[in-house]
Design a protein around this nucleic acid. Structure first.
Lengths: 141, 141
DNA sequence: CTAAACTTGACCATTTTAGTCAGGTATGTA
DNA sequence: TACATACCTGACTAAAATGGTCAAGTTTAG
């Protein structure tokens, strides 16, 4: 299973970006300061988000990034996929043509992980950036 | 998020064990051969399963392990917990007294991970070893 | 008494993670 | 046109996690 802080940072950064209503580009430097994420790391992440057409970049002074779609159309699945977070559960060995235990059969637990994967993916497919904007304002501890 | 092959091996081994109907102890050597898991690694795993009272051990020749509970009462949550697989999603930094971004607030995505965690845990709390026995026989690829 | 099987703990190679660093290139503004 | 700002790219790396191995036992059935 892979779901690490790269995915979390991507979501945090996009929520931050979405707050600025898609009008003025937001610089990574600003996001870095507000969210406490290293600038260099953000650049890696946004490079991928751009390749996947989730954001657009505007170069030069006063440049930055803006969303490339409506927050309602950006599902969390899309974001994780973009930054290479596979919502894959445990892999049963290199599952090419053969089964996952080397034999020609699926391992006992194979179906279980398939089910789990579907369960989690469903969760993320039903969450959009818009949902996060509405429900998850920063809250006092 | 932590859900690796240690957890998967634990489940595989227990399903294997459960097949023998709780009557004759099953040696780790047999499980190792049938499931293709290293014997030494199995020993680490079963040591933890025993501490958590999921299995009982019987020493000496003809010894081995047997289940300590009814398969219906062994939920996957219990198994993962035993082998230290935290069904925890991304951690928002060391979340002691302070918020997850160093400030006194929760980070934007905090609630999201909480929700996900509940979502996944629910899945595992509703699955028992018995369910796996019924539904997940080895199947041809 | 001895072989089979459990028990414990140290150790380790490889991979992944979470970044840093260094050098670019593009462009709005003065 | 200079220059600061911001994007862009790729190489590199320290630390942690993973998935084990290895060694040296102890216990007990037969």
């Amino acid at each position: 299973m892979k779901l690490t802080s790269k995915g979390r940072y991507a979501v945090m950064a996009l929520v931050d970006l979405a707050r600025f209503d898609n009008i003025n580009p937001v610089s990574l430097r600003d996001i870095s300061l507000r969210q406490g994420i290293s600038l260099d790391y953000l650049e890696q992440i946004f490079s991928k988000l751009k390749k996947n057409e989730i954001v657009k970049s505007i170069r030069g002074t006063q440049g930055g990034y803006i969303l490339n779609k409506n927050p309602n159309d950006i599902k969390l699945t899309n974001i994780f996929h973009a930054v290479d977070e596979k919502i894959k559960t445990v892999q049963c060995k290199k599952e090419s043509k053969r089964g996952c235990n080397g034999k020609a059969t699926k391992c006992i637990t194979h179906n279980l992980w398939d089910e789990l994967e579907i369960h989690i993916n469903t969760f993320f497919e039903n969450k959009s950036l818009k949902d996060l904007l509405n429900n998850n304002k920063e809250t006092r501890v």
